[in-house]
Design a protein around this nucleic acid. Structure first.
Lengths: 204, 204
DNA sequence: AGAAAGTTGTGACTTTTGTCACAACAGTCA
DNA sequence: TGACTGTTGTGACAAAAGTCACAACTTTCT
């Protein structure tokens, strides 16, 4: 009854299924709970079974989004930590109530990587996709003005044309401040790109 | 006589050493040669045996450094491409004459990953380190003003206290323009942090 | 030596982003 | 209902980064 595939990788080996059952634990969290804190040792690999988790880095006064984890996704940084003891450099926070996390102690993750082919594929795939995604984000940050990054972000996050977030939240995800976002949104509205509501942005 | 370890990972398996000899080819390049071009299919994993390679992304008019490859390092992006056919999203260019590259066709890289333990460790290690490094670069880009990024960059690149690069080169690596760099360097000089010479910056 | 190419410095200006201060409004809860 | 908290708008200003134009200097090559 536990998942038999993760992120498109089908788990075929019976042994792996068994080991997963035996060694992984499941935890549930409420909105706002910290899943991982900056500077904390990582001891388990976390896979989001249900809900949404925001992974971000913080500065004294600002934050920037690294990625969201949705259903069946896993934190690349904690995967990375499985292969070499290290502390987290990011925070991860539950964005929804009833976020359910599968926790696998790091030593299994490491061993399975050479023992089970499907787990090996899973590991490599996570690294591959995350790395490409991050490079992309990196060059956007380097080359695109904030106005464009904001608009692209809205488009990518819109569910049926609508994003339900406050300006403050958007600022934190894009690594800037609330006033700047408010102003850029106003400009976008003037240019008929979006329509602004209370805690809600509609894309035209 | 070919390398028996790469990036701190010792190759112990005789079979792997043999396969490396049989399937890898060696190429040499001059300063300025393209090793990988943007939008090109990646067919071999490249490991730098000698010399230095600059990997960067470009925009219409600007560039930003992703990383340098030094002796015995490999391009994470081409490693990533070994596991899923894809085009390069970056350029790689030889920074020194006599850059020597080991080329391994992608299918071997993929197969060896589950066949040889040391190769598996190598793969994972590359991904791990590259990912952590990139996250770090990403949040520097997001949070640090250019002035600080410039100074940190100089310190990290200085050999016995000296960086031999033109302002134009620095601009391209930091994703900005020459005039901006010139001015920031002048300010750093005024603040007694560095001493400027022709195509040379001395750190105080 | 002298031309050409590359490098550095800088003033004047624009655009982008960040900061501060304050007002108005919406939603929640006692 | 009225206080409280969170959200949005905006003016005024400051700081950071980018652009354009041009001068002067170095290095390289013939």
């Amino acid at each position: 009854m536990l998942e038999t595939f993760i992120k498109g990788i089908r788990i075929t080996e019976e042994g792996l299924k068994e080991e997963l059952h035996k060694n992984a634990t499941i935890t549930t969290h409420n909105k706002g709970d910290f899943i991982i804190k900056n500077n904390q040792y990582i001891k388990v690999l976390k896979i989001v079974l249900e809900g949404k988790v925001r992974v971000y880095q913080e500065n004294e006064d600002r934050e920037i989004l690294i990625y969201y984890l949705n259903t069946m996704e896993t934190c690349t940084l904690s995967l990375s930590a499985c292969f070499e003891d290290c502390k987290s450099t990011v925070n991860a926070i539950a964005e929804e109530d009833c976020t359910i996390i599968l926790n696998i102690p790091v030593r299994f993750v490491r061993d399975w990587n050479f023992k089970y082919k499907s787990w090996n594929r899973f590991t490599i795939n996570i690294f591959r996709e995350s790395y490409l995604y991050l490079i992309d984000q990196y060059s956007n940050l380097a080359f695109q003005p904030l106005k464009d990054r904001l608009f692209d972000y809205l488009v990518s996050k819109a569910l049926s044309g609508v994003v339900k977030k406050s300006h403050q939240e958007l600022a934190k995800e894009l690594g800037t401040t609330r006033e700047v976002i408010s102003r850029l949104l106003k400009t976008l509205e003037k240019n008929k790109k979006i329509h602004l509501g209370q805690k809600q942005i509609e894309i035209v």
